[in-house]
């Protein structure tokens, strides 16, 4: 049986997991430089250890209300294709090992969650939505065929 590590996060009152393999760290972020003309879920840019990170508002990507800005927030740092991204989440919980591969969701997810999920995993008897990192970055479902 396959066991992978996942990070449990909370977004818009909902718990979900991100695959730990692509996560670099979790940081507290300060003020973000906005990017005019960017899609709604791109919060802006932030300098992390002398690198420019693109900050993604996961709530906006999931179609929920945009977070009120201003205060420092927690961001999950992810590297994708030479670029650094920070996913702003409401709360970072814990890293846990979960067995098995994600299964397609049987429940009817809201359109936002459905577009951003890569499947469902069981953890301590609770179903957990696995977030699709690529989809969160682009704000669009990764592949409609999958």
């Amino acid at each position: 049986m396959m066991t992978d590590l996942y990070l449990i996060v909370e977004i818009d009152g909902q718990k979900a997991v991100l695959p730990a393999s692509c996560i670099e760290s979790v940081v507290e972020m300060g003020e973000v430089t906005p990017v005019p003309c960017a899609p709604r879920h791109v919060l802006g840019l932030f300098a992390l250890r002398s690198r420019v990170m693109t900050v993604i508002d996961t709530r906006a990507a999931l179609g929920a209300d945009v977070r009120p800005g201003g205060r420092a927030v927690q961001a999950v740092i992810v590297t994708m294709g030479d670029h650094l991204y920070g996913f702003v989440v409401d709360h970072v919980d814990d890293v846990v090992p979960i067995d098995g591969a994600p299964a397609p969701a049987r429940a009817l997810l809201s359109p936002g969650w459905a577009a951003m999920s890569a499947g469902i995993l069981e953890h301590d008897g609770m179903p957990m939505i696995v977030l699709d990192v690529d989809a969160l970055i682009s704000g669009k479902p990764t592949a409609l065929a999958a």
Binding site: C37, L45, I137
Partner: peptide, 12 residues
């Protein structure tokens, strides 16, 4: 440095 694709896609 090149920006992330989603930012380059803004086109400006």
């Amino acid at each position: 440095k090149p920006a992330a694709p989603i930012i380059m896609a803004c086109g400006i």
